[in-house]
Simulated scan of single mutants.
Amino acid sequence: MEENIITKPDSSRMQLELSLGDQLNALLSASHALNVRTAAVFDPTLQPAAFLIVRWLLSNGPAAATLLAESTAMDRSSVSRLVSRLKQLGYVKSETHPEDRRGVLLSLTELGREKALKAIKEKEEEFYKRISKWEDSDLETFIYMLRCFNGYGTK
């Protein structure tokens, strides 16, 4: 005779999952706060969302506004407004798309690139402070676990 067993979640597992949630929330909150501070280092007169565009262009190169909107999860009108401001300040420029003469590509100017790199360096220093005393093996384990968590599998 087969029993219909209803299992309760293991309370120790539930506690671990709650603790994981707490730590992920702390990481996301700290990362967001650091992103806002980094954006202010880049240019305190801009909204932090503008730095998200700058960061994307720095990492990925020239792009159409539509791709920027999709990639940053912002609506087109917000991207358009932020890009206009970035252009006014000399951080972003528009160029005709080389393959589609009707299209426009946005890219960082030299000033935009220099300021972005300076701001990012300060952000990286904050994260490096947190791991500076870790053993290499601890850092390797952390990287491995983050890769797994982020869906990238194993080394």
Rank of each mutant, 00 (worst) to 15 (best):
V92I: 12
K121N: 04
S59R: 15
Q47P: 06
D100I: 06
G90N: 07
S59H: 14
R85P: 03
L46N: 11
A116F: 00
T72W: 02
E125F: 05
A73L: 13
K123G: 03
K115I: 01
E126R: 07
P48A: 08
A73P: 02
A116E: 01
D100V: 08
S80F: 08
R55M: 10
A26H: 04
V92G: 12
E70S: 10
L46W: 04
S71Q: 15
L106Y: 13
Y144R: 09
K87F: 10
V104I: 12
A50Y: 12
S59M: 13
A30H: 14
S78F: 06
N60G: 04
S107Q: 10
S31I: 01
Q88K: 14
E70N: 10
E125V: 05
E135H: 05
D43K: 06
I53W: 11
A73I: 08
E125N: 00
Q88F: 08
E124N: 03
K118S: 02
M145R: 11
T38I: 00
L67E: 13
G90S: 08
S94W: 08
V92A: 09
D100Y: 09
R76L: 13
N25Q: 15
S84K: 15
S80V: 05
A69N: 04
S59C: 10
L58S: 14
S137F: 04
L46A: 13
A73V: 08
T141N: 04
T45Y: 03
K121W: 03
L139D: 02
G112E: 05
E114C: 06
D75T: 05
E126N: 05
D100W: 09
L111Y: 03
L139Q: 01
A65N: 09
R101F: 05
E122A: 01
L34M: 15
V79L: 04
V54W: 12
I120A: 00
E124D: 03
E124L: 00
A39N: 07
P44E: 14
I131S: 00
Y128M: 04
V54G: 00
L67C: 04
